[in-house]
């Protein structure tokens, strides 16, 4: 046979989850919309977050009509689109983040940009960036098969979703499709900051663990170190999005954004430790 088996994105993602389990804490996965406030400043923001203790990243490919996102991420996406951050530009940014931070990076998008590009081509392009996986926010398990096939062909780790509203049959159906991890939606609602920690995480994690060892990453409504720590007790990873994006779009300058985000990510990392 030709070249030796190369480590796939999914392998590297699995390795991260295994390492986190061994160290007894959940991975901190900050979310940030690609290329805001600018491409180069965005690269620096991801580096600053890596230095502050992020274990990996979710990079949002901006989309014009993001049904799963609240006002903060919508605004960031609009800002990026207005600045010309197309899918190829966002993927370039993903590649730079992979290269400069060395961390596992998940690309996040909505289903239509994938379909427009062609499922196979889109997954190939994401794999080429060195990203470990892909999250498609409006893709339920029911429609996911062709996307999972592309993920498998390109070695990318794709997530499927479980929400507090998901019943046992749907949960089992999602697990049966063998996703690289379960993106567990901690709060009913779109992305955004909440005052209280989720009351759903413990029960959701128990329901998943009962059936499978698939890694669980909590996201949606996790916006403070305390909330991250609470979710992190039950999951393999925690995504913090709007609280980080808000610090970037509200900052007076790129430098200000960098220090605000670094200090915030440092606080979350400390809470998860």
């Amino acid at each position: 046979m030709g070249e030796a088996m190369r480590e796939t994105g999914r392998d590297r993602l699995n390795a991260m989850f295994a390492a986190m389990r061994a160290s007894g804490r959940a991975a901190l996965l900050p979310y940030l919309t690609a290329a805001i406030p600018t491409f180069e400043a965005s690269v620096r923001l991801f580096k600053a977050m890596a230095d502050a203790g992020a274990d990996g990243f979710e990079v949002g490919i901006p989309y014009a009509d993001p049904l799963m996102d609240g006002p903060v991420i919508m605004r960031a996406g609009r800002q990026a689109l207005d600045a010309g951050v197309t899918v190829p530009v966002a993927l370039d940014l993903v590649a730079r983040v992979v290269e400069e931070t060395g961390k596992p990076v998940l690309a996040m998008t909505y289903v239509n940009p994938v379909l427009r590009r062609g499922i196979e081509r889109f997954f190939n392009e994401v794999a080429t960036t060195g990203a470990v996986g892909l999250i498609i926010a409006d893709l339920p398990a029911d429609e996911a098969v062709p996307f999972l096939e592309a993920a498998s062909a390109t070695g990318l780790g794709m997530s499927l979703f479980v929400a507090p509203t998901t019943d046992d049959a749907r949960l089992q159906a999602a697990l049966d499709l063998d996703p690289a991890f379960i993106y567990a939606i901690a709060e009913v609602g779109v992305t955004g900051e909440r005052d209280d920690a989720s009351s759903n995480t413990e029960r959701m994690a128990a329901r998943i663990r009962e059936r499978s060892d698939t890694p669980i990453v909590f996201g949606v409504g996790i916006s403070t170190p305390d909330q991250a720590a609470a979710a992190g007790r039950h999951g393999d990873g925690v995504i913090v999005g709007s609280a980080i994006v808000r610090r970037v779009i509200d900052a007076g300058s790129a430098a200000e954004a960098e220090s605000a985000v670094a200090s915030f990510v440092g606080d979350i990392a400390a809470a998860l430790a």
Binding site: L139, P140, E143, F161, A163, P164, T165
Partner: peptide
Amino acid sequence: ERGRFGAYGGMFAPETLMPA
């Protein structure tokens, strides 16, 4: 059964809405 009229339709919705 997938909610399709030929190639069109379906349920491309966030999981939170799917049970509803």
